[in-house]
Structure formats: C-alpha cells, structure tokens
Design a protein around this nucleic acid. Structure first.
Length: 341
DNA sequence: AATCCGGGGCG
DNA sequence: CGCCCAGGATT
C-alpha cells in the first residue's frame, strides 16, 4: 500500500479522511492532487473552500472536504499550528471520529490506539467467530474492546496497518482468499464453514406496520384527492383522504371512527365497498392499505382541504404505487350512473 | 438509535 | 440493475 510507513500526521490525516468509505484506487489520485495543492497544514488552513471543493469534486461525501478545512483552521488557531497528538484532541477535530483519531495517533505518533474499521471488524468477526452485528451498540463495544486487547503495544502502527491490510487484501468481504491466508488454520469462521455468514450484517431498519385506510369519495364523476406535504413517505405525491391507524381496523369500525365522522359527518353518503390492497413493502415499513369507496351526492358541499378531480383526470397526478395499482384494477367511472346518486 | 451523506464495484 | 460497502455528523 502506497501510504505504508507514512509518519507525517498531516499526510496520514489527509489520506485517512479521503479514504473513508472510499476505495484506494478511487481516492488515491485525489490524495495526490490535494497534497500538491495543499502540501502542508498551513496551506490547507488558508485554502478557499470553493477551490478545495472543486478539487474534491467527484469524490462524494462533500462534508469531508468542508470538515478538512475547518479542522485545518482549528489546528492553526487552537493548537498553534502544531498537529495535536492526543487521541482526545484528535477526536475534537471536525470529521475525525474514533477510527481516524486512532489511525493518526498510531501511524503518526506511535500511540497505542487500535483502529476499528470495516476491514478490522471483518477479520475479527471471522477469526474469532463473533456473531454480533457491528452496527449495534453491543457489537461496537465488543469489537472495539477486542481490538484494543489485541493491539501490539510495541508497534501499534504496524499492528493496525497489518490488520487492515489483511482485511482489505485477503479477508475480503465476498470472496476472501482463505487458501492464501496466514491465519486460515486458526480462523473459527473458516474451520466451521461460516466465512460467508460473518461478520453478521447489521440488522436492517426495523420494519414497522402502518395501516392506511383510504376513502375514495366519489361525487358524480369526481373524486377527492390531496397532495402529501408532510415529511413522510410519498412526499409530494397525491392520495385520497386518508385515515391512518397504528393497528388493523375493519370497515365497520372504520366508518364509526372519529376521523371518519369528522370527515364525512354531515354529508349524505353511502358506502359502496371496501377492498384491501396488496401488502406494500418498503425498506422499513409495511403498508397495509385499504380502499373504501364512498358515494356522495354530486351536489354536496366540497370537502375542505381536498381537490375535487374528475376521475378521467386522475392520470395527471402522481400517486404512490399502492394507489396507482388500486386505480388500475378499479375503474371509478360509471358508479354514479349505476347508483343513481 | 436512526438517518443522511455520494460514489463505485460486484454478482 | 439491484445490492453492498462504510465513518462521521446530525437529530
């Protein structure tokens, strides 16, 4: 690896920040570019953010670049232009978290702080057969503690580098080179055939259920809709009047519920039918939808806060798939004629 | 504790 | 093309 043996804290810091969430072959040219434009701390502290961001362009996670300049200026003022050595001081720099602080402390200053990045976690999880998910508080503590106990205090920088190199080049995420791994014989995951299962992937966002009861209120050839504006799923898409509940609610209870009466209270209405929508699965939600078709006289007062739209023009509005699918399977026309309302 | 922040690589 | 990767800040 090109940064092997680098001891200059500025260079270590710069490379570690650039290499956060970034592959070496993607980030390395940016590192060289930055080093050329800003060869030392003071030149970076004086850099114009516009210019630095331009150099960062295409690398992503642009707050890293802003934090870089912020931290450089903080070092210039608060630390008298001298790169801080204490882990605690490093942590106080914007954009420097536990990983980067440990990397600088150990690589540049030889201080005994264990780095715990994705590579290290993968090696430890496999070698020791640890099934805890790294993203949980429990898992974080476990891997950090283990890495710290394992650290070679004679040469923390070398130890950290070796562990990360092993994770990056041999103990890779998908198809690790176990046949070439020096630790193969003592690797719990390898010996028990758990390589593909470790490390345990973080639990996805926990899935919660939401119950959306849509009221398809038809007045003659028109129907009521509105735009979703709150910070929620489907923002800026349209929908029918909605009653949401935290628990399942049958049609009978729905039409006697408070929100239902508030909405339709003094209107002359007739329930036509209720049908359930197929379960809609989102990343962290399951939407249980239902559509209750309700007829009101064409002449009835307009519902406040809603658009009254001819059913033939519904195609001009963007709906969530849940609603769009319902519309495709349930043409809303002719209902008024059939019922005489 | 959950969510956001951008890219690229891989199957 | 969808899935995966991942450190730090924010809320």
């Amino acid at each position: 690896m090109p940064w092997r043996g680098e001891k200059d804290p500025y260079r270590v810091w710069l490379s570690e920040v650039i290499l956060q969430q970034t592959r070496v072959d993607q980030g390395w040219s940016y590192y060289l570019k930055f080093l050329k434009a800003y060869p030392d701390l003071s030149s970076l502290a004086q850099a114009r953010e516009e210019e630095a961001l331009l150099a960062w362009q295409g690398l992503g996670y642009y707050s890293r670049c802003r934090h870089l300049l912020e931290a450089a200026r903080m070092i210039a003022t608060r630390f008298g232009g001298k790169f801080p050595e204490r882990h605690e001081d490093l942590l106080s720099l914007p954009g420097v978290g536990a990983y980067t602080a440990a990397a600088i402390a150990s690589f540049a200053f030889g201080l005994p702080h264990a780095v715990v990045d994705g590579n290290v976690i993968r090696v430890l999880a496999r070698f020791f057969g640890i099934g805890m998910a790294p993203g949980t508080a429990e898992g974080k503590a476990a891997f950090a503690g283990l890495a710290d106990r394992l650290l070679d205090r004679k040469d923390p920088g070398m130890h950290n580098q070796a562990l990360m190199d092993l994770g990056a080049q041999v103990c890779s995420p998908r198809s690790p080179s176990c046949p070439h791994c020096p630790l193969q014989g003592r690797c719990i995951a390898y010996r028990s055939g758990q390589i593909k299962l470790l490390p345990t992937r973080d639990p996805g966002p926990r899935v919660t259920d939401r119950y959306f009861h849509y009221l398809v209120i038809q007045a003659g050839d028109s129907v009521y809709i509105r735009k979703r504006t709150s910070n929620d799923i489907w923002k800026h898409l349209y929908e029918f009047p909605l009653i949401e509940t935290k628990r399942p609610l049958g049609p009978e209870k729905l039409i006697r519920s408070r929100p239902f009466c508030d909405l339709l209270g003094n209107l002359d209405f007739r329930i036509w039918e209720t049908r359930k929508a197929p379960l809609q699965k989102l990343t962290h939600r399951r939407i249980h939808g239902s559509f209750t078709r309700i007829l009101v006289p064409e002449s009835s007062a307009r519902l406040e806060g809603f658009l009254r739209v001819p059913v033939t023009e519904l195609s001009r509005y963007a709906f969530p798939r849940l609603i769009f699918s319902f519309l495709q399977g349930n043409p809303l026309t002719l209902l008024g004629l059939m019922t005489g309302l």
